[in-house]
């Protein structure tokens, strides 16, 4: 009898489902008979982003804080960026300047997003005013936000007090790039330099930022991002002391 106990229940469920299907089928057939009404409905529902798929601009920015982009996909994209740019410039300096410009556009957005997130998450969001703390922020936070890890060193030039250097031992964007010998001066990290320039500009620390290959035996891809600050920045820094 243990077997027969659930059996009628099942049959009840199946009966109800059967009846519901029967109940639904006339409505569906009636819908098919009136094509204009359902098609209007369906067109509305498809053009409107549903509750499960909000518009990309409406998505919460903090949810993607820890989201990561595939490094391979990015490597392919960046490779195409370099090839595209290379076809439209004459000479290495021009290519570096173009990459810098592209990076600048990314940098302005990255800074905006970082500041927005910092304001949202901390109780006392703070704007950096001192040069050193700004450089430290670029060295750690910007690098973390863009590349997923901090840069390897931040140095001050011995000869020129207005020059600082951020050093990355193995830049993510150059990991798969081998520059041919006849273009050995080219550093594709000019893109990164553009990002840094935009961030510094956005924080009112205008500077000229360039990138240079400084390979070592251990790190053949080691790259130095050279920051040459404008005079006004150093003068203001003196006043703030």
């Amino acid at each position: 009898m243990a077997y027969t106990q659930p059996h009628p229940r099942l049959s009840v469920v199946s009966n109800s489902s059967h009846s519901s299907v029967d109940h639904l089928s006339p409505t569906t057939t009636s819908r098919f008979s009136l094509p204009s009404v359902p098609s209007l409905h369906s067109s509305i529902t498809t053009t409107k982003p549903g509750p499960n798929r909000p518009n990309i601009y409406d998505r919460p920015l903090n949810k993607t804080r820890s989201a990561e982009v595939s490094a391979s996909a990015f490597a392919f994209l960046f490779s195409e960026v370099v090839q595209y740019t290379q076809k439209r410039v004459s000479g290495i300096n021009d290519l570096e300047r173009q990459l810098n410009t592209l990076g600048y556009r990314l940098g302005t957005r990255a800074l905006e997003l970082m500041v927005w997130r910092a304001e949202g998450s901390s109780k006392a969001p703070k704007r950096e005013l001192k040069l050193l703390s700004v450089l430290m922020m670029v060295h750690t936070q910007v690098w973390k936000a863009v590349f997923g890890k901090g840069a390897d060193a931040l140095e001050r030039s011995v000869e020129n007090p207005d020059e600082y250097m951020i050093i990355d031992n193995d830049p993510l964007i150059e990991r798969h790039i081998s520059v041919p010998r006849d273009m050995s001066q080219l550093s594709c990290s000019s893109f990164t330099a553009g990002i840094v320039e935009a961030v510094l500009d956005g924080l009112s620390f205008p500077a000229r930022v360039t990138s240079h290959n400084t390979p070592t035996v251990q790190y053949p891809n080691r790259t130095t991002i050279l920051i040459k600050l404008e005079k006004s920045v150093l003068e203001r820094e003196e006043l703030l002391k």
Partner: peptide, 9 residues
């Protein structure tokens, strides 16, 4: 795939 196809040069 890494060192050749992702190399812009």
């Amino acid at each position: 795939a890494d060192a050749v196809m992702k190399n812009p040069f």
